[in-house]
Design a protein around this nucleic acid. Structure first.
Length: 854
RNA sequence: GCCCAAGUGGCGGAAUGGUAGACGCAGGGGAUUCAAAAUCCCCCGCCUUCGGGCGUGAGAGUUCGAAUCUCUCCUUGGGCACCA
C-alpha cells in the first residue's frame, strides 16, 4: 500500500461500516413512510416471501432490485413506501409439523424471526413498522371481512369441483403431492373426486380482465400475452344434436364449426350429466368412468393421459343432414369445465381427435385441403393457421377457396339464419376455487345450520380464529376432527350450528396484501385516505412464475375490493408497472455413492473440482436454480459475513440483466468485493490530495462524469442495473487513471458515490462522509447530467462496404451528407474496393454510418 | 400435450435495424517484492498465405445493412388453476 504518497490508508471493513450506517438510517427514521402532500409518492413492492426459515440468493436479488429503485426514488425527491411482510400460510408448515412435530404456528413465526434477522443486514430501505404476516389474526380477520363483503356482493358461491383424492389416506392432495399419479405418502393411485367447494366468480370479470391488459403498458408483453391466453376468449358455435332416442339433445360448443361436415362422433366428458346418469345404471360405464378418474386433476395429467373412449350406444342426428347418424362417445380428454363438456370431433383437422379415431376405428373425413399440395389426412391432422386460404370440399355454405376464419364466420351466420345454432363467446378462465381442506390457512367465516343452511358469520365475531390445540399425527384436516372448534351458534337463528372447516387458498392472502400495506394496523381491511394516497403500486417486482395466477387473482381482487368499497376505482389495476426478475443459479457438484446414486456437495465443500474432505473429483453439472436438494446453494449470510452486504448486492445486480437468470460464482463475488475495495482506496487517495492541487484533464474527467450520470440514470430507470454497473466500472477506471486536479477528482468521487448509492448504500454513505458531503447521501439529490457537457463536436463514422465494416472516418457532427460521401469515397478501403468503378449505391445515415454498395 | 420465453468468445454478458463481443471473470505477459499474497500496467473471438476470410443454436427469407424483423427446426427454462 505504499505506491502513493499520503497518510496511512484505511482498510475497507464492511462489517463495521454497514452496521454503522444501518444504525444511522434507523435513528433518522429515513424509511418510515408517511403521507405528505409536498412530494410525489412512490410505492415500490417486491413479492413478499414465504417464510421457509432461510433467505436465499433469489431473495437477495429480488429485494436488492426493489431497494435500488426505492433508494433512487428517495434521491429524486419521492415519498417512498417500501414495505415487507410474510406470505405465511401454506402447506410447508403442516408438512413440517407432520415430519418433525411441533405446531405450524410456532414453526412459521420462528422462521419469520430467523429470516428477518438474515434480511436486516442487507441494509434494505424497508419500512419495518408496516410488517405483518398473513397468518396474523389481525390480517386474516380482515380477509374474512373482505370475504363476507364479497359473499354479499354475489362474488362467492358454492359448487362441486374435482380434487385429487388419496383413497388410502382418505384425504385431499395438492397437485405437488401427487407423484406419477400416486399419493406422496401412501403411494396409492390417486383418483379424481368431487367435493362441494367455495368459488370466487372471477369469470364475471373475464372480459374486463382481458381488455384491461391493453392498459398495462409497463408490464412485460409476455406476461400480458400469457394472461390473454389463460383467459382464452374464443368465439364459436353452440348448437344441439338431436338424439335418435327420446333423450334430451346434447349441446356442444365448438370453435371450429366450419369442420362440421368432417364430424366423426360426438364426445362427452366423463363428468357430463349423461355419463353420470349412465354410470348409475351400467356396471360397464361405471368401470369405464372409474378408469377415467384415475390420475391427478392437473391439465397436464389429463392431456398427456392415454386417450380412452367408450361408445355409449346413443346416436344423434347431424344437424345438416338428418339421415346422417353419429355415435356418442365418452372420452377422457374432454373437460367438463370448458364449454358445455361436449364436443363434436373432426379428426381430419385436430390431432387429438385423429389419434382417438384411429385408436377406435372411427371415420376420418377431410373437409378442406391445402391449396398447393392437396392430400387426404393419414397419420397427421391438417391444421393450418385460421388465416391461411384452403380449398373446401363439399362446404355446406358453398365456399370453395377461403380461410378458416371466413369459413367459421360463414358457418355461424348460416346456423343463426337457419335457427339451429348461435355464435357465442366463451372463456377458458374458470372460477377460482378457494376451498382448501387444510388447517394452516384463513378459515372461511361461514357456519352450517340445519335450519338456516349456509350462514355468514357476523362481522363482530371476526376473526374466526384457528384453534391452537391441533395435532398432525393423522392425515386429513385437523379442523374436521377437532372436538369443539366446529360447534358454534347460528348467527341467524341462534341455534346450534357447525363451522365451515375449509380454509382459504393461500393465493387469497397474497391477492390484497399490497393494499393492506397502505394501512397495516387498521380495524378495517383498508382505510380510504391511505389507499387513495399510496395506491397504486408504482413498481411491482417478482418472479415470472407468478405471471398468471397470482397477478390475475390480484387484479380480480382489486376490482372486487372496489365494488365492496375497500379500494378506489383508480386502483382496479393495482400494479402500474411490473418487472419479472430471473433466478439465481449455481453449478451442481455431484459424485456417486457405492450404489451409483448421485451424491451432491455444497459449493463451500468443493475446491479445485474436488471434494475437500475426501479428495474425490466432482462431476460439474451446468447451472440450475439453487435448490436444497441439489445442494447448489450459497447462503447469503455467509457471503455477507465474508464480504459484506454491499458486495452481495453489487454482485447479484452486476453480471446479468435483471430479467434473466444470474449464475452465482465465487470468483464473481470476489471480483465485486475487489472492486468495492478499489473504490474505497481511490476515495482515500483523493481525500489525501492537497485540496489546491492543479492537474490536467479536468474537463475530460468531468465530461466523462456527466456521460456516466446519464448512462447510469438510464440504467436505473429501465431495469438495466447490469448496464449501470458496467458504466460505473468504466468510470472508476477513468477516475483512477485521471491526472485531474483535486477539486475535479473530489467532485468525481462524490458523484461516483451517489451513483453507486442505490446499489452499495453503506459504502456510498462512508465515501460521502469522508469527502465532506452534506447530511446523509440518501437524502442528497441524485446527480443530473449537464447536457452541455454531453455534446461532442466530432463523430466517428464507420464505413461499410456491402454492409461490412471496412474503415472509419472522423467528421464534424453536422457535416452535410454530400461532404460525408466525398470523404467516404476518398477512403482507401473504398478506393480499393471500387477499383475505379462508380458505387452502385451509397447510404449515409447522419451521425451513424456510411454504407457503400459496389 | 398446450401456453410463454431464452440461446452471442473458455465463462457471465454488451449491442433491439447501423463499428458484434462494452464491462466483468478465467487465461497469458510484464512491473513491484528476498519471495509470496495483495496491487498496478499490457494482451486476449476463430482462421490466415497478413491481402483478408469466417463468426451471434441450425436452416431459409426480408433489407443497402440482421444478434436484432419473418418462417421452420433443435435445445434449455417458466406456467398449466390444490407448491408458493
Amino acid at each position: 500500500m505504499s505506491y502513493h504518497e499520503g497518510p496511512q490508508m484505511t482498510r475497507y471493513t464492511p462489517a463495521e461500516i454497514e452496521a454503522k450506517w444501518q444504525d444511522a438510517w434507523d435513528k433518522a427514521g429515513v424509511f418510515e413512510a408517511k403521507r405528505s402532500a409536498d412530494k410525489p409518492k412512490y410505492y415500490v413492492l417486491e413479492m413478499f416471501p414465504y417464510p421457509s426459515g432461510r433467505i436465499h440468493m433469489g431473495h437477495v436479488r429480488n429485494y436488492t432490485m426493489g431497494d435500488v429503485i426505492a433508494r433512487h426514488k428517495i434521491a429524486t425527491g419521492h415519498n417512498v413506501l417500501h414495505p415487507m411482510g410474510w406470505d405465511a400460510f401454506g402447506m410447508p408448515a403442516e408438512n413440517a409439523a407432520m415430519a418433525i412435530g411441533g405446531h405450524p404456528k410456532e414453526w412459521t413465526y420462528s422462521n419469520i424471526a430467523d429470516m428477518r434477522s438474515q434480511m436486516k443486514p442487507l441494509g434494505l430501505s424497508i419500512d419495518w413498522s408496516r410488517e405483518f404476516a398473513t397468518c396474523d389474526p389481525e390480517y386474516y380477520g380482515q380477509q374474512q371481512a373482505l370475504f363476507l363483503d364479497m359473499l354479499e356482493a354475489g362474488l362467492v358461491y358454492r359448487k362441486n369441483a374435482v380434487v385429487n383424492w388419496d383413497p388410502v389416506d382418505m384425504t385431499v392432495l395438492a397437485n405437488e403431492q401427487v407423484e406419477n399419479g400416486r399419493g406422496w405418502r401412501s403411494g396409492a393411485l390417486v383418483e379424481r373426486r368431487e367435493l362441494t367447494q367455495w368459488f370466487f366468480k372471477i369469470s364475471d370479470y373475464a372480459e374486463d380482465l382481458l381488455e384491461a391488459l391493453d392498459t398495462l403498458d409497463n408490464w412485460p408483453a409476455k406476461v400480458r400475452l400469457m394472461q390473454e391466453n389463460w383467459i382464452g376468449k374464443s368465439r364459436g358455435l353452440q348448437f344441439s344434436f338431436e338424439r335418435t332416442d327420446d333423450g334430451a339433445p346434447i349441446t356442444v360448443y365448438t370453435t371450429r364449426p366450419d369442420t362440421l361436415m368432417g364430424a366423426s362422433f360426438v364426445g362427452i366428458s366423463p363428468d357430463h350429466p349423461i355419463a353420470k346418469a349412465m354410470e348409475a345404471e351400467s356396471d360397464e360405464v361405471a368401470a369405464f368412468l372409474a378408469e377415467c378418474r384415475k390420475g391427478g386433476t392437473t391439465e397436464e395429467a389429463v392431456e398427456t393421459a392415454e386417450k380412452l373412449g367408450m361408445d355409449t350406444g346413443i346416436r344423434v342426428k347431424h344437424p345438416l343432414n338428418p339421415d346422417w347418424e353419429l355415435p356418442v362417445w365418452i372420452a377422457n380428454f374432454i373437460l367438463m369445465d370448458y364449454g358445455t363438456g361436449a364436443i363434436f370431433a373432426c379428426p381430419a383437422h385436430d390431432q387429438r381427435d385423429l389419434d382417438f379415431c384411429r385408436k377406435y376405428d372411427l371415420p376420418v373425413i377431410d373437409t378442406f385441403m391445402a391449396l398447393d399440395a392437396p392430400k387426404p389426412v393419414e397419420a397427421e391432422a391438417f391444421v393450418p393457421p385460421k388465416t391461411e386460404k384452403v380449398r373446401w370440399i363439399n362446404h355446406f355454405a358453398g365456399l370453395d377457396v377461403a380461410t378458416g376464419e371466413e369459413a367459421i364466420n360463414a358457418t355461424i351466420d348460416k346456423a343463426e339464419a337457419e335457427g339451429w345454432g348461435e355464435g357465442v363467446t366463451k372463456f377458458r378462465l374458470r372460477d377460482w376455487g378457494l376451498s382448501r381442506q387444510r388447517y394452516w390457512g384463513c378459515p372461511i367465516p361461514v357456519v352450517h345450520c340445519d335450519t338456516c343452511g349456509v350462514v355468514p358469520e357476523k362481522k363482530e365475531n371476526l376473526p374466526v380464529r384457528l384453534p391452537d390445540d391441533v395435532s398432525f399425527d393423522r392425515p386429513g384436516n385437523p379442523l374436521d376432527r377437532h372436538p369443539t372448534w366446529r360447534s358454534c351458534t347460528c348467527p341467524k337463528c341462534g341455534g346450534a350450528a357447525l363451522r365451515e372447516t375449509d380454509t382459504m387458498d393461500t393465493f387469497v392472502d397474497s391477492s390484497w396484501y399490497f393494499a393492506r400495506f397502505t394501512a397495516p394496523r387498521a380495524e378495517t381491511p383498508t382505510v380510504a385516505e391511505d389507499a387513495a394516497y399510496w395506491m397504486n403500486v408504482d413498481q411491482y417486482i417478482g418472479g415470472i412464475e407468478h405471471a398468471i395466477l397470482h397477478l390475475l387473482y390480484s387484479r380480480f381482487f382489486a376490482r372486487a375490493m372496489n365494488i365492496t368499497g375497500h379500494l378506489p376505482k383508480s386502483a382496479s389495476e393495482p400494479f402500474d408497472a411490473l418487472f419479472t426478475q430471473g433466478m439465481v443459479t449455481h453449478e451442481i457438484y455431484q459424485t456417486r455413492d457405492a450404489n451409483d446414486r448421485p451424491v451432491y456437495h455444497l459449493p463451500e465443500d468443493v475446491e479445485d473440482g474436488k471434494v475437500k474432505a475426501t479428495g474425490e473429483t466432482v462431476e460439474i453439472i451446468p447451472s440450475a436454480k439453487m435448490s436444497k436438494s441439489k445442494k447448489n446453494v450459497v447462503d447469503p449470510v455467509s457471503i455477507i459475513d465474508a464480504f459484506g452486504a454491499d458486495t452481495a448486492r453489487w454482485f447479484v445486480l452486476s453480471d446479468s440483466p435483471p430479467e434473466r437468470d444470474v449464475e452465482w460464482t465465487a470468483s464473481g463475488a470476489e471480483a465485486a468485493h475487489k472492486h468495492l475495495t478499489r473504490v474505497w482506496t481511490l476515495c482515500d487517495k483523493i481525500a489525501a490530495m492537497d485540496p489546491d492541487a492543479k492537474g490536467e484533464g479536468d474537463q475530460d474527467l468531468l465530461r466523462e462524469m456527466h456521460k456516466t450520470i446519464r448512462d447510469v440514470t438510464l440504467g436505473l430507470e429501465s431495469f438495466g442495473f447490469n448496464a449501470s454497473i458496467a458504466k460505473l466500472y468504466a468510470f472508476t477506471n477513468i477516475l483512477s487513471k485521471s491526472k485531474a486536479g483535486a477539486a475535479a477528482q473530489k467532485e468525481a468521487i462524490k458523484v461516483l458515490a451517489q451513483l453507486m448509492a442505490p446499489m452499495t448504500p453503506h459504502l456510498a454513505e462512508d465515501i460521502w462522509a469522508l469527502q465532506g458531503g452534506e447530511g446523509l447521501i440518501i437524502h442528497a439529490p441524485f446527480p443530473v447530467a449537464d447536457e452541455a457537457m454531453l455534446v461532442e463536436a466530432t463523430v466517428t463514422l464507420p464505413i461499410q462496404i456491402n454492409g461490412k465494416r471496412r474503415g472509419e472516418i472522423e467528421v464534424a457532427k453536422d457535416l452535410p451528407k454530400e461532404e460525408v460521401e466525398k470523404l467516404a469515397l476518398a477512403h482507401e478501403a473504398v478506393v480499393r474496393a471500387l477499383d475505379g468503378a462508380a458505387p452502385k449505391k451509397m447510404i449515409v445515415v447522419p451521425g451513424r454510418i456510411v454504407n457503400v454498395v459496389v
